[in-house]
Each structure stands twice: as C-alpha cells, then as structure tokens.
Design a protein around this nucleic acid. Structure first.
Lengths: 90, 90, 90, 90
DNA sequence: GTGGTCTAGACCACT
DNA sequence: GTGGTCTAGACCACC
C-alpha cells in the first residue's frame, strides 16, 4: 500500500485497529508486519501517536537494494487498500 | 534529578508543564511520576502553587531504606535535567 | 451498578471501552473509577482478560463499613446502566 | 467577536489560555466572561474539549430581545479579535 | 499560572 | 480483544 502511493512519505497510517480490520487480520499479525516495516526503516511507530511513513520504497529499483523483510504476494490490492477477502463468511 | 542535587530540600520544582517539556513526555505521564514521588514522600504537590521537595533520597544509603516505587534507569541525565531524546521525530 | 445487582459476585464487567461508552465518559476517566474500586477490593482487573466483581458492597449496611473511596451521587442510574446524559452535544 | 462573525455557529473558540492572552486579560476574568456567555446560551463549554458557539446574536435586532448579561463597550475590536491594548509595557 | 481532571485516540503488553 | 500506558490538548478549581 505504501509502494502504491496510498500512503505518501511523512503521512500517518490508519490506526493498528483500523488496518487490521481493513485487511481482515488480527492486530497481533498486523503489528508483526508493522514491526518488520519499522525494522526496514519504512515507517516509524510513535507511541501514543500513530505510525508514520518515513521512506517510500521504489518499486522501479527493486533488486538494487536488499530488503531484509521482503513481501511475497500472489496479488496486489486495489488503491483503496481494502482486502477483498474481508467480505467472507463468519 | 533530586538525587543529583539539582533540586534541594524545600525547593520548588519547575511546573508540570515545564518538566514535561524538559523530558519530552506528556504532562499526564509526568504527573504519574510526580504522584509516585509524592506517595513515597519525596515531594509535596500543592494545588495552585507547585511541587516542592520534601525529602532528598540518599543514593549512598540505597538498600537501607525501601522505596515503594523504585526507579529503573539504564543511564543518568546531565545536571541540567534535559532529556537528550527530546529531539524526537515528527 | 454493582450495588444494584447488575453485576453479581465473580461476574465479568463489560470491557473498559464498552463501559466508558455506556456512561458517556472517556476511557481514562472510567479507568480511574475502576482503579478506585479495585483499591477498595470491590473488583479485580486482570490484564488482557477483563475486570471481575470480587465483592458486592451491601447498601443496607452502609455506615458499618468504611469505604476508602466513597461515591457521591445525586441520583441513581437505571438497571441498564446507561447514562441518560449520553446524548450530549457535539 | 462572535457578533462580528469571527466565530460562526458551531465553531470552536480558541482555548481559554489563548483567548486570555489575545485580550491581555487573566484567565479568571476571561472565564467569568465565558460563563456569562454560556448563561445566555451563546456558547457551550464542554469539559476537556473546548468552548463552542451555539447561537450567534443578531446585532440588527438589538433591543428586541433582552440580554441578561449585556456588553458595554466604548469601542469595537478589529476582525482579527486582537486586543490593541496588548502591546502595553510590562 | 499552578495543580487537578477530563477528552479522544493512539500504541503496548498480555491472555 | 483485553487491560496498561502514552500523547496532545482542553477546561476546572485553586492560590
């Protein structure tokens, strides 16, 4: 979603609670993802404030720089950042 | 800071607002710390007036007296009491 | 609400988030109330689990036992525990 | 300032601290004024949130309705709401 | 202008 | 998804 330009540099991400609901995953799983992003310096998590984009990875230069925690996806989500799987049965 | 002699007995501490800015934390968090210090009788908070040092803990005699709310620090701040982390990101 | 029998002994209270919405107050304020109740041993707050009633104060015997943190109310709420003031202005 | 359209209906007034500095008066004096305005239903003071304009008095109809707490001024302030007396010696 | 309290909302640590 | 803590900023009661 950051690569897709949905969240520009220095912008504030939705809250952990919102993001986890958007993707249909638990907060624990979402936090693990955020912590990996922070480890790679893509975001900064500020206690009591929110998570902020600190660097937008360049899709074009993929391969020139090594990502410590690469993302393996079989598909990309739309620009609204919503997980289509969310409309699943409960 | 009291142990370091920065604020002697019966002296007036900076206001809660000042102290919170000095340490780079919110006033609510600073107040929780002051309330713990007051619980241990190190300071007295006077409504509408300020906070005052009522007892200076002796570092040397550490262990002879029991602190209800001990402080766990990995480092000590300078004599100006300023938090070097204050230059935090935005 | 505990005195009114809404939450019997050993029962689980609604979450802090729910209770704060029910009463139309912020979660921080609700927590201060819960902490006072816990101090007086009426409830137990279990991290990651919830708050539980540990003792039901007897209204009838009021005066025979001393409450450290008494409640001063000008009125009582209904059995649903909802605050009529909740429809506040914005 | 409300009559001059500086603060429209449902808008949020500056904080008590800001307003008192703007007019060069103490917060106590400013609060007395706000409380009078609230008594006349011109504003609503929401604890922990701020003061909000609830009704804009009509200058044109002055006299048709009775103000409980009328304002007696010898002059009007500019649209910026700043008190010219503020630039006084200290 | 101080300490005291409240709002609204976030991340953190835990079950 | 809970309680625990923190942020940022407001009004309240008081000196």
């Amino acid at each position: 979603m950051i690569e897709n330009g949905l969240y520009p540099e220095n912008s504030k991400l939705p809250s952990e609670s919102e993001l986890s609901h958007m993707r249909g995953i638990s907060r624990m799983t979402l936090r693990q993802a955020l912590l990996l992003l922070q480890e790679d310096r893509y975001i900064v998590m500020r206690l009591g404030s929110g998570s902020y984009v600190s660097k937008v990875p360049s899709e074009k230069r993929a391969g020139l720089e090594k990502k410590t925690n690469p993302v393996y996806t079989s598909s990309q989500y739309g620009s609204n950042g919503l997980d289509p799987r969310k409309e699943r049965q409960r």
